[in-house]
């Protein structure tokens, strides 16, 4: 399952979507909104996505991961819209036969997602806002 959603992410739903009896491990990463960036207070974030391409890029990452690790099943849910500190922004669940691969594959997927998936984050502070990573 791959989804981009404006609704709060149901973590259990994501884990269940990745659950199969062939798996001996399901590693789950939960990315949340931090209340500060470089010491500056973050009031809220806004995420936007190029949705169809975001879904296809996530699928490419999972296909790539599957070449290295035996992934039985996986699920990725990424939130878009306005989020507050503490809110869940992304959940990734990766099921593999044994635990080591589930940790490694899950880390590979979140690291790659941050590099190539067309999703953008705008941070709002008391005195302004910025698109994260846009400028040097």
């Amino acid at each position: 399952m791959i989804e981009i959603t404006e609704l709060p992410i149901d973590v259990l739903k994501v884990i269940k979507a990745a659950s199969l009896h062939e798996a001996g491990a399901i590693n789950t990463f939960i990315g949340t909104v931090r209340n500060q960036t470089s010491g500056k207070g973050v009031l809220r974030l806004e995420f936007e996505a190029y949705e169809p391409m975001a879904v296809s890029e996530i699928r490419k990452i999972a296909d790539q991961a599957n070449k290295t690790w035996n992934i039985v099943s996986y699920a990725v849910s990424h939130r878009i819209g306005a989020l507050l500190p503490g809110d869940i922004a992304v959940v990734i669940a990766v099921a593999t036969p044994h635990r080591k691969a589930s940790f490694e594959a899950c880390q590979f997927i979140i690291d790659s997602l941050k590099q190539t998936v067309p999703i953008w984050k705008r941070e709002f502070f008391e005195d302004g806002d910025q698109w994260v990573s846009a400028h040097p």
């Binding site: 979140i110 190539t116 999703i119």
Partner: peptide, 10 residues
């Protein structure tokens, strides 16, 4: 065609 500025998901 779409412009993809630096991404920052996750």
């Amino acid at each position: 065609i779409a412009l993809i500025p630096p991404v920052s998901g996750g």
